[in-house]
Structure formats: C-alpha cells, structure tokens
Design a binder for these strands. Sequence first.
DNA 1: CGGATAGTTGAGTTATCTCAAATGCAGTGG
DNA 2: CCACTGCATTTGAGATAACTCAACTATCCG
Lengths: 243, 243
Amino acid sequence: MAIALSMPDTTLCAACGLKDMSLCAAVLKSESNLHPEAARLSLTPQSAPARRTIYHPKEWSDDAFIICNGWAASSISLPDGRRQILALLLPGDIAFADSLFEATSRRTVEAITDVTYRRYNRSRFKDIILTNRDLLDQYVKILHEERARADELTLDLGRRKSDERIARLILDLTERLSKRGMMSGQTMPFPLRQRHIADATGLTSVHVSKVLSEFQRAGLIEVGARSLTIINTAGLRQVVGPR
Amino acid sequence: MAIALSMPDTTLCAACGLKDMSLCAAVLKSESNLHPEAARLSLTPQSAPARRTIYHPKEWSDDAFIICNGWAASSISLPDGRRQILALLLPGDIAFADSLFEATSRRTVEAITDVTYRRYNRSRFKDIILTNRDLLDQYVKILHEERARADELTLDLGRRKSDERIARLILDLTERLSKRGMMSGQTMPFPLRQRHIADATGLTSVHVSKVLSEFQRAGLIEVGARSLTIINTAGLRQVVGPR
DNA sequence: CGGATAGTTGAGTTATCTCAAATGCAGTGG
DNA sequence: CCACTGCATTTGAGATAACTCAACTATCCG
C-alpha cells in the first residue's frame, strides 16, 4: 500500500515546479481559504514504489490523484492478461481527469517509477472547480487536451503501423516532457520498460525491441540507461509521416 | 450543404421520443425561459443526406450538434486516407459532447444515413448546463458513458482480434439501440456499410466481409436489407470472451 | 553471488492485408 | 423501361506485418 510522506505539504509543492501547469496550486489555495484546517486532510501526499498498483478498478474510491513525481500508467485489461495502456501519466497529470465526477472506472493506475502523488477528494475537488471560473477553464482545457490525445491514440491503434506508433509515442513524450522542463537537450528520462511501450502501442514487447533496434541502427535515436536521446528528429518525424 | 427544415421545432421534438435520454428537452425548456425569442435561433433544425460531411475539421464552428434522426459517424483521418471512426452517433447523441467547451477539433462528422440534427450554440449550451444542477449531472453522466466507450474502443483496437471487435460492435449497438426503443426483437436497423464497420474496428472492409460471412455461416447472425438479426446472442458473446 | 526481470535475436506461424476479378444492387438519364 | 455507371459485397490467391516460441545475454537487486 501507499505510504504517507512525512514531508510537509509546502516543501513538496515548492519543489514541484508544476504549479502553473497543474491544478494543484489553485486547489491548494482555494481549499485553505475555505476550510483552513480541512485542507491538509484532503491533500494527503503519498508515495508508491515502481510497479505498485495505485488504483485498482474494483477499489471504490472517492479520490482523484495528481502525480507529483515519477511516471505512472493508466490502463485497462482483459481477464486473459491482455492489457492496453490508455495514458502515460507524467508529473502534473491528473489521473481520472475525465471522470472526475464519477466514482467508478474500469481503469487501473500503476506506478512505473517510484511516484509521489496527491489524492483529492473528488466531490470537494468538483465544488472547488465549479465555483472558480479560472479553474474551470483550466480544467476544461486539460480535459480537451487529454481527449485529443485519446483520439490520436485510437487512430494510432486502429490505423498506424508499428513503427509509426512507436515514433509517435517518443515524439509525444518529448513534447510533454519539454513543457515540464524535463528534457536535457535532445535527451529525456526514459523509465519505460519495453512492455510498457508494447502495452501503450498495442504491440508485443518482442516486436517493440525489434523496432527500437531498427530506429537505433538507422541513427534516429539512442537509448541508454533509463534515458533516450533523439539523434535525428526530422527522420523520426518522417517515420510518422505527415500529420 | 445542410438544408434547414421548414418543420416547426415542436413537431420535430414531439416526434423525437428521446427527450428523456438526451439533453434536448431540458435545453429547449431552459432556453425559452431565459430568452423566449432567441431560442429558435440557437436550435436550428437541419438535415443532411447520407454520406454528407456535417462537420469538417477545418471549419471553425461555434456549434455542437445533437442527432435527432439517422446515424452519423465521428472520425479522424490521416492525409493518405486511412480513417478511424471514433464513435457512431445514434439519435439523441451529442457530437462533441466531450469538447463542448472548445471550438477546435480534428474530428469529422459524417452522415451515414440521411440525418436530421440540431445545432446548439456552444457557449449558450455551456451557460445553460452550468447553471442547472440536474442538467450538469446528466451531462456529466453522458460524458462518462462516452469516455467508458472510448476506453473500450482503445482496448479493442490495441488488444482484441478482428472477430472479437466486430462482435463487440454489434453487441454494443444492440444495447444502445434497445435503450432507444429501436430494436424489433432481435432485429435492428443496420445502415452501416462494411467500410464503416472496417473504419470503426481498424480493419479492412474485405476482412470485415469475411468475418461477417463467418458469423452467418456459424448461425450467430443474419444480415438482410439494411438490417441485422442476432440469432444466437450467447454465441456472439462467447466470441467476445469474458468481459 | 544468485535469482529475477528485461532485452535481443532467430526461426517459424498466423492474422490480416493487398490485389484482383466477378457479382449484385441502386440510382440516373435516355 | 433499359442500359449504364458507380458503389458494395464476395471470394480467392498471394504477400506481409506482427506474433509466438525459444534460447541466449544483460542488467538489476538483494
């Protein structure tokens, strides 16, 4: 199970650096205005080690999460073990943004790296968002981005070839990471195992290995210890093709 | 281009029979309360013949649609013509429910049969929904259902075999149609061309033809003139497998 | 150091695709 | 009313992308 951090809220959030991007800061602020002493309760910071399941679909939970540090995956599975990752969650991302108002979900959320995250009481979150116009707008914008990404994933799985899918995954990650200031030049942290890539792209990890080797042999990328460097961005874009 | 109907609003809505299911009635009511004379303007009923594109992604539109009659498809395409249908829209469904608050979308909406639909001004729609708690709840519920369906589609495309996907499509349609009172026993209207099925399931229309023939040979379904009958529901469910 | 997890590579299999030709069917204009 | 054109469907043959299986190596963690 997840273990509560002893660090005080402010320390964690000060280090977060994502205040502008995520809803955390605004929620924190609204909350402490409204219910000064209740605020701490609703914003329990927690952590989980890599591979741990943070949210199980059977679990009935009134919470939504925001990832503070680390990577997680939101996925959905079949009884025979086939699994599809619906979204990779990076710091600042909200799990269940799109079903913030509903308690039930078939999705599983799983830590990829060690993660720290905050749980928000859904109904309080909802109240706060609905009573603050700026927050609502920001929330709606996040929803829309997420929806657009989901549409593209559907297109990927239904209509694109394996190499296009993988190239898109990489390019998409670079965009999202650079927005967060997590790129070092062309190099990014890359904690994904090949089975994560496989489950995100609807492929087999064996096949992912082959495609990645191919990309490296072609001088498009270079993968090192938990990191990935793009050598030839234009080339990678060309694999994807126009739009 | 779409042609405005001369039929008065009330006639069309009285015949619709979907008032409880969709947001139409509530919106109509709220609207006429607020701005009696403006209401007619915002709710232009329109119609389009089969195959016509109702919404083009380049088109910048301030409207959301609700389908009154007929079937439509919301899809997204690549420049080389590959196409993925994201959702089949049945009477009472809202196109762009999930991006009701944003003007931009990559999606195309296309009539499958002749359709009639209503356009709603997005921002007015938004105001109405946000100021009426029941409406908001209903809207949120619709969003959630849609999201769940989208998740399942992603799972289908990434992880399920062709026959499972097609069986799921059929079963999903029977559910949605029976909620609308559009099933006659085990028989449903089935205006989809095989290329619609193909584009919805990420397959080729040739392959769809083979799978459907297989289903018929196995005595699971029977397809006739723009209609489909399920002969063996349990068998069809078994094709899909558990969950 | 040992055991588990992750990645690589090759050989053989299969689901699905592409291409192509034949048939049916619906709407249009003469 | 017929012939014509365009779209939809069926079917078969052959091609191919991605999969399965399996063995081997590398890496990580206690």
